[in-house]
Nucleic acid binder design. Structure first.
Lengths: 223, 223
DNA sequence: ACATTTTTTTAGGTTAATCTAAAAATAAAT
DNA sequence: ATTTATTTTTAGATTAACCTAAAAAAATGT
């Protein structure tokens, strides 16, 4: 094993978080936003950014924020890959519910063995998406792009298939389970209430009101 | 989760090592022997013993050595259980060879989730032995006792089935693989050479000379 | 443009797990 | 029974990852 390139769990967690924060936009990630997500103080984040910067994993400019370097990006993707493969394993093979697997996968994603993850992937049949509908990067860090759009951007009467969540927080997943909305369901947007921007949708032979916030967190594939 | 009773990986490793060192005999484990196995210095071990002793996991008397307390023993067994279940998973499900799984299981054994290990066990069909023939403790910490004896204690002409290794070091496992000795094989002790205590055995339609050291590390079930 | 607020960094400490070197206790050897 | 050797512990440092409080830089408001 190349010990020099071995990252601590903490370093890996920072990379993963910066990756999540910078994905989509191309602006530098602020120190505070990292601190908030990691539940630490900004001063701790600064320390870590300096360290990751020295290791060439992050491009960091004092007071100006950070972006992952190419190397840092590769590393982050490999962690995301592990996380999502493990989540898939937990749900598909061990019969966990999709709202139970996050914390366990947070631990499993740090297990160090390329061979393990290769074999796990093969065992699962090289899945392209995890139980929350998130794409699983392949061994080369390539991510299947999928045409999906948040329900919040739908037009009235538009129909789509629910393919994934944006934020996979425990509480949101539990909300969906409780309300029997599952990946694969067909949804139709019936009406948006102007007063509070709540969405009236039709799915599984019933009508249903959801908040704008919920709508934003549902990814659909338009038909 | 009961955070107070949460142990660090390092603490868990110490408990596991003390467990291994004290099993069989009833004497206190010396600080130096722990240091040797853990690849650290005796002074570091002393520090840790004091900490574990304060937590009630180890009975430690200055200069006199240590034993696991009841609580420490339970914890150690639960780690051994996890280790062996994961090894079984790696070999049975992911098709690893038995000499490739140790390091990965060393990492996996520290994953914290009772539910995970319960589900993993069920998924594997509640195996009683791991790929090296070591018994897997059940959820209550009970260990299947098996009548097995080291080949070194066999009499001439005695026949037995190879059911497990004593020491499962990488090098020993690789030696066995290379020489096509696998769990389940029937072995017969033909002769012990008085000069160097080497053992002449018969297995898989061939004769074979092994050192005394190898003989000591093979567990057989006498027929 | 300047004062105020917010963000970020620095300076200096803390804790867990390690280390080295020295001191203390135990064990072994004559 | 002393001396010598070995084992174990203590004392004092180090490192990674965190913290608080203060200083510095950037952003904002008037």
């Amino acid at each position: 094993m190349k010990k020099e390139s071995m990252l601590s769990q903490t370093e890996e967690n920072y990379l993963k978080e910066i990756y999540a924060l910078q994905e989509g936009n191309q602006w530098a990630v602020s120190t505070n936003s990292i601190a908030e997500k990691m539940q630490t103080k900004a001063s701790s984040v600064t320390d870590m950014l300096q360290k990751l910067s020295n290791k060439g994993l992050v491009d960091y400019t004092k007071y100006r924020g950070s972006r992952l370097s190419g190397k840092g990006n590769d590393k982050a993707i490999s962690i995301v890959r592990k996380h999502r493969l493990w989540e898939t394993f937990l749900v598909e093979k061990l019969n966990f519910l999709w709202d139970e697997v996050h914390d366990i996968a947070e631990q499993l994603e740090h297990i160090k063995s390329e061979k393990l993850i290769k074999k796990l992937e093969a065992y699962l049949g090289s899945p392209k998406f995890d139980p929350h509908g998130h794409p699983i990067p392949n061994g080369n860090g390539e991510i299947t792009k999928v045409n999906r759009v948040s329900l919040a951007e739908f037009r009235i009467e538009e129909v789509g298939i629910f393919v994934g969540v944006k934020d996979s927080s425990d509480s949101f997943l539990k909300y969906l389970s409780k309300n029997k909305i599952a990946i694969g369901d067909t949804l139709k947007l019936l009406y948006i209430e102007p007063f509070d921007n709540s969405f009236l949708i039709y799915t599984n032979s019933r009508q249903f009101v959801i908040s704008e916030n919920v709508a934003k967190n549902l990814y659909l594939k338009s038909e």
